[in-house]
Amino acid sequence: MIKAVLIEDEPQLMETNRLMLKQNFPNIKIVGEADTVSKAINTIQEQQPQLVLLDIELADGNCFQVLNQCRPYTFKPVFITAYNHYAIKAIKFSAIDYILKPVNEFEFCNAINTAITSINEDEIKLQTFNFEQQYNNEAKSKKLLLRTADSLHLVDIKEIIFCRSDNSYTTFFLNDGQKIIVSRSIKEYEEMLSEHDFIRPHQSFLVNLSHVTKIDKTDGGFMVMKNKKEIPISSRRKQMVIDKLDSL
Rank of each mutant, 00 (worst) to 15 (best):
Lys3Asn: 12
Asn17Arg: 02
Arg18Cys: 12
Leu19Lys: 11
Met20Ala: 06
Leu21Gln: 04
Gln23Thr: 09
Gln23Tyr: 11
Ile30Trp: 02
Thr36Gln: 09
Val37Ile: 07
Ala40Asn: 01
Asn42Ala: 12
Ile56Pro: 00
Asp60Trp: 08
Leu67Ala: 09
Asn68Phe: 08
Cys70Pro: 03
Arg71Cys: 08
Pro72Val: 05
Ile80Arg: 02
Thr81Gly: 10
Ile88Thr: 14
Ile96Gly: 04
Glu107Tyr: 15
Ile112His: 00
Ile112Phe: 08
Asn113Cys: 05
Thr117Asn: 15
Asn120Thr: 04
Lys125Glu: 15
Asn130Gln: 13
Tyr135His: 09
Asn137Trp: 07
Lys143Leu: 08
Leu144His: 05
Ala149Gln: 13
Glu159Gln: 14
Ser165Thr: 06
Asp166Arg: 13
Ser168Trp: 08
Tyr169Asn: 03
Thr170Glu: 01
Thr171Glu: 06
Phe172Leu: 07
Lys179Pro: 02
Ile180Trp: 01
Ile181Lys: 10
Lys187Met: 08
Glu188Lys: 13
His202Phe: 07
Gln203Ser: 10
Leu206Gly: 02
Leu206Met: 11
Ser210Arg: 08
His211Leu: 05
His211Thr: 07
Thr213Asp: 10
Thr213Met: 11
Ile215Leu: 12
Asp216Met: 07
Lys217Cys: 10
Thr218Lys: 15
Gly220Val: 03
Gly221Asp: 03
Val224Ile: 15
Lys226Gln: 15
Pro232Met: 10
Pro232Val: 08
Arg237Cys: 01
Gln239Arg: 14
Gln239Asp: 14
Val241Glu: 01
